[in-house]
Design a protein around this nucleic acid. Structure first.
Length: 574
RNA sequence: UGGGGUGUCGCCAAGUGGUAAGGCACAAGGUUUUGAUCCUUGCAUUCGUUGGUUCGAAUCCAGCCACCCCAGCCA
């Protein structure tokens, strides 16, 4: 790790760029990144990619990473989102540098820099309405037309700009625009809006302002003020890079530096640079803030933290661990080609982490009663079974065994398919961690439904192989008298299509997988798994990894299946 | 029809003129008191395509093709 960052050439275009910048001493060897969410929604796995990238880069190169809320639009931002975003980042295991930053805390400086641009005749107050501005902007293949206010005297713009701030004008009546080039082939350079009037309270600055700076104007300056060296963002901002650079070039270098956190320190100062990478997309998943919101509002899911949601809150509740998400982001890599990552990669990442760390337990989803004929009525064994097959240091838990137990209905078959290794009439099977049993008799009700099995125990098989024969099958079980009733929730992919690309909310709802949630009541769990010291992530053997959900109203414990175990039975030669 | 990008194995992704890393998926074996895990092996004579430069090209040049982004006073 260390060597990779310092000596040999790192892999990937961003790391190589940073290595180059460090080698050339561009920023005095500093690496300072930032994660700049807008607090207008909940974080999802796509944000995690950016979080991991920015924070890991800083960590690897001995740099810093800020958390900055990019809050320049009072209409959609909220303190609740700030809180949940901070929480999610901490949960992922990252710690930002110093205090949380807010673009809104730079409003006063932003205002002063805007006055500077006006004085330099690089910005002007425009009286075109939003509709007119759009018409004047031209089209992709047709140049725009200069605003009639473009040559307004800077003094007049300065006065108007001050009065905009004072609240003398209505929303949309005036705007501050950069004076660049209405014929530029890059639409972003056709005199972009820098400030718009919005008589709206801001969750941070309250009623202090009635006009707000735009993203393009704010982001680059915020980066500069925080002395960010590498400003990473997604591909769709590529066209904005010339504007990012333009703004920082127009502002007087010394004033920008003086206002920055570096102040007049001796360290070299060069403006931050924007670099773009492809955003994350995952098969059978949709990561559009707007559509995720619709999903919640239209009732497609139960909320932002519904375990089927790709939000960090949802994935956390589902049972995804921070390490699994970080490993996944690492495995996916960072490039500039737009790709659709196979959801199997995400599933692999959780399985990998949970296989190593989740204690094992036994839970029967659909119980079938089994009476052990030769097991004495009042007898109750407490079998010590390892919590993990490979990690003895995790200890053993005590699993009760009595005369009556339950096994999984599907682990018994009257007419077993070829290759069936579980219990059949007259056959033997191993009870995990306990004895080998033989099915002696099958009982049915009037409808022919199997109600109960009578089996005999081979007491000479505890911790050892049976004499003279091989028993291949091993099944999970639970003691009837001691089992705890729990509810299980099994999940499947939320969307039917591999690449859901809805164009409207109707398509979002139409694309949902109707079988994405299966809730099973009355499952039987071994008692040790419900104790506090057992934790809340488990592998229910042979069934999957489960995560204890927050307390259910009824009082019945609920476990969400994070992911099933890999199941290769029935494939190939099995 | 303008501008900006991207095209390497089914899915991601290294590679930056010297003869195609790795992961996921898949397949075949082995171990196994989880049909799990683990282990071993296999899996691109070829890098969107056509030409060119070169002793030598995924890497350089030119043309073509496909796909993505941009006309919010959203970010």
């Amino acid at each position: 790790m260390q060597n990779e960052a310092e000596s040999s050439t790192p892999s990937g275009f961003i790391r190589q760029m940073i290595a180059r910048d460090i080698a050339s001493g561009k920023h005095g060897g500093r690496v300072h990144t930032r994660f700049p969410p807008e607090p207008n929604g909940y974080l999802h796995i796509g944000h995690a990619k950016s979080i991991c990238l920015n924070f890991s880069l800083a960590e690897e190169y001995g740099g810093l990473c800020n958390l900055r809320f990019d809050d320049t639009n009072p209409l959609r931002e909220d303190q609740d989102f700030v809180d949940s975003i901070k929480e999610n980042i901490r949960w992922l295991g990252f710690r930002w540098h110093g205090e949380v930053r807010y673009s809104s805390s730079y409003f006063e400086q932003l205002y002063e820099f805007a006055r500077q641009l006006i004085r330099k005749d690089r910005a002007y107050v425009c009286a075109l309405s939003p509709d007119q501005a759009r018409e004047y902007r031209g089209a992709l293949t047709a140049p725009g037309v200069d605003s009639p206010w473009r040559e307004r005297d800077p003094e007049e713009s300065l006065d108007l700009f001050a009065r905009m701030r004072q609240g003398e004008f209505a929303d949309g009546e005036l705007s501050l625009r950069a004076k660049i080039d209405m014929a530029a082939p890059n639409m972003n350079l056709r005199d972009p809006i820098l400030y718009r009037i919005r008589h709206a309270a801001h969750y941070q600055t309250g009623a202090d302002w009635c006009m707000y700076p735009t993203y393009d104007y704010t982001h680059c300056i915020s980066d500069a003020l925080e002395n960010i060296t590498h400003s990473l963002c997604t591909l769709e901002f590529e066209d904005h890079r010339p504007l990012y650079d333009w703004i920082l070039q127009q502002i007087d270098r010394d004033s920008l530096r003086a206002a920055s956190e570096l102040g007049d320190a001796a360290a070299p100062w060069v403006p931050p640079e924007q670099t773009e990478f492809a955003k994350l997309r995952i098969s059978y998943t949709m990561l559009g803030k707007r559509f995720l919101r619709a999903l919640v509002e239209e009732g497609g899911v139960a909320g932002w933290d519904d375990p089927r949601m790709p939000t960090l809150a949802g994935m956390r509740r589902r049972g995804y661990t921070p390490a699994s998400i970080r490993n996944f982001c690492e495995a996916v890599g960072v490039a500039r080609s737009e790709s659709l990552v196979d959801i199997a990669m995400l599933e692999h990442a959780v399985r990998e982490d949970l296989d190593r760390n989740a204690p094992r337990a036994m839970c029967v989803l659909r119980p079938l009663k089994v009476v052990l004929r030769n097991f004495d009525e009042g007898r109750r064994d407490m079998l010590p079974i390892p919590c993990h097959p490979k990690r003895g240091e995790l200890g053993r838990r005590k699993v009760p065994l009595g005369r009556e137990i339950c096994i999984e209905r599907e682990d018994f078959a009257v007419a077993p398919p070829p290759g069936f290794k579980r219990l059949v009439a007259g056959g033997e099977v191993r009870l995990r961690g306990a004895y080998v049993i033989r099915c002696e008799e099958v009982f049915r009700d009037a409808a022919g439904e199997i109600t109960e099995l009578h089996c005999s125990v081979d007491f000479d098989t505890l911790g050892k192989r049976p004499e003279g024969r091989k028993v291949k099958g091993v099944i999970h079980w639970v003691s009837l008298a001691a089992a705890e009733k729990v509810t299980l929730r099994l999940y499947d992919r939320l969307f039917v299509e591999e690449n859901p690309a809805p164009k409207n909310i109707g398509e979002v709802m139409a694309g949902l997988n109707p079988d994405s949630l299966e809730q099973i009541e009355g499952c039987l769990l071994e008692p040790a798994a419900l104790t506090a010291e057992a934790g809340d992530h488990f592998q229910f053997e042979r069934v999957g990894y489960f995560h204890r959900d927050r307390e259910a109203e009824s009082g019945t414990p609920v476990f969400n299946r994070t992911i099933s175990l890999r199941d290769t039975w029935g494939r190939g030669s099995g």
